Amino acid sequence: MITIDGSEGEGGGQVLRYSAALSLLTGEAFTIRKIRGGRAKPGMMRQHVTALEAACAIGGAECSGLTVGASELTFRPGSVTPGEYHFAVGTAGSTGLVLQTVLVPLMLADAPSRLVIEGGTHAMAAPPFEFLQKTLLPILERMGPKLSITLERHGFYPRGGGRIVVDIDPSPLRQIECIERGAFKAGKVEALVAGIPFDIADRELNAARKVLAEWPDEAFAPMKLPAENGPGNALLMKAEFEHVTEVMSGFGKLGVPAERLSKTAAKRMAGYLASPAFAGPYLQDQLLLPFAMAGGGAFTTVKISEHTKTAVTLVERFSGRDFRFSETSEGSHLVEVS
């Protein structure tokens, strides 16, 4: 039984999700205390409960203490069973983070699976649907599995109500290296609005143009969604390279001016564009688990995040894999899995 302090490192829900995924993959049971101890409101939120319920469902696991607000639980994995599953967060909690918990275990199962996940698809502190579709899943497909993801309905905070469908055709994972991102092909900025004034999109796009001045005017586009999908707003920035597409995002919030939201997201994209690295700040920690399960691999990335440091500690503890970090002569960071 592995004992984990949920307040260490990143100190958020990532510790819980990674632990559950690793437990299913390695067969190691765990107890976690001080769940989300590094957050202003510690304990499990609805999306964390749904993620663990999903892990229990696909993995035949036993889990005690699985309630909203709980600060401690024990998880004992069974065997992963592929199939058709439906998980509903019930709030705007992230569909992508629920998927993160069960994706790699199902990628290594012995038959295909289909997941229907309902909740938030575009919300703060979580990867939007487009990141999963354009950035993460294409890289995981290079490792062997066939993956597809469909957005059936947008879900914004606080209403939620979004719906994604994920099909997973599993395969043993092969080692890959993601060192060079290749030539820049195209950039695009989309401002999504649903049930709120449309001029918010124009204000966001105008602010983004000032930071990403080298991108052509046609790269900036507003998108009006049906009002019943909202209220909500998301700003999505995509930089397509030969070997990877990076997605940066910002999400509308009461009290935060559209221009500030846009400028922050655009500066993150500009920072990535100025680096030669393959993986951006949000992709780097998503690659650790599949690379470890493949038994090796390497990728270059921007500055190592606290999320990545926390995930490395967990992966090493459950799997015994070792990670090596070094800085390249071009200023990016090389992550190698042995």
Rank of each mutant, 00 (worst) to 15 (best):
G119M: 00
S7H: 05
F220I: 03
E306D: 14
G96Q: 09
G161P: 07
M107F: 05
A221G: 02
H154R: 14
S249I: 02
A20I: 02
F220W: 03
G69W: 05
L99A: 07
F30A: 06
V15E: 10
L22P: 03
G12V: 07
V244H: 08
G230A: 04
S94F: 03
T264P: 09
I2M: 12
L288Q: 09
S326E: 10
H86W: 13
G120C: 01
R203G: 05
R33A: 11
F325Y: 11
E180Y: 12
Q100I: 03
A270C: 09
V247G: 12
S64Y: 14
L97K: 06
R203V: 11
T313A: 15
T135I: 09
Y282H: 14
M269W: 06
G6N: 00
P77T: 06
A57H: 15
A126D: 12
L108R: 09
L192N: 13
E141L: 07
S64T: 15
A201R: 12
E214D: 15
K146C: 09
Q284W: 09
I200G: 04
R114N: 00
A109H: 06
G230I: 03
G161A: 05
P257G: 06
I35H: 02
T301V: 04
R163Y: 07
T95Y: 08
E10Q: 08
Y282Q: 10
T310R: 00
H307A: 05
T264C: 11
P158C: 11
T74Y: 04
G280H: 05
S79A: 12
T264D: 15
V312Y: 08
L314P: 02
S94P: 00
P172T: 05
G38D: 07
G187K: 03
I196Y: 08
R209Y: 03
F251I: 03
L136R: 03
V98Y: 01
L236I: 15
L136H: 04
V104C: 09
G12H: 11
Y272W: 02
T310W: 01
G12R: 08
L16H: 01
M124N: 13
N229Q: 15
A274H: 10
K134Q: 12
W215S: 02
Q100F: 11
Q175I: 10
R317A: 08
L225M: 14
M124Y: 11
A123L: 15
T301G: 07
E10P: 06
H333D: 12
P77E: 02
E204V: 11
A40I: 14
A54D: 01
G13W: 07
Q14H: 04
E62V: 13
S338I: 10
N229R: 09
A277C: 06
E190G: 09
R33W: 06
H243D: 11
T310I: 03
S7V: 05
A92T: 02
L115H: 00
A29L: 03
L140Q: 09
E214W: 11
F220M: 04
P172R: 04
S7A: 15
F131L: 08
E53R: 08
M237S: 02
D322G: 13
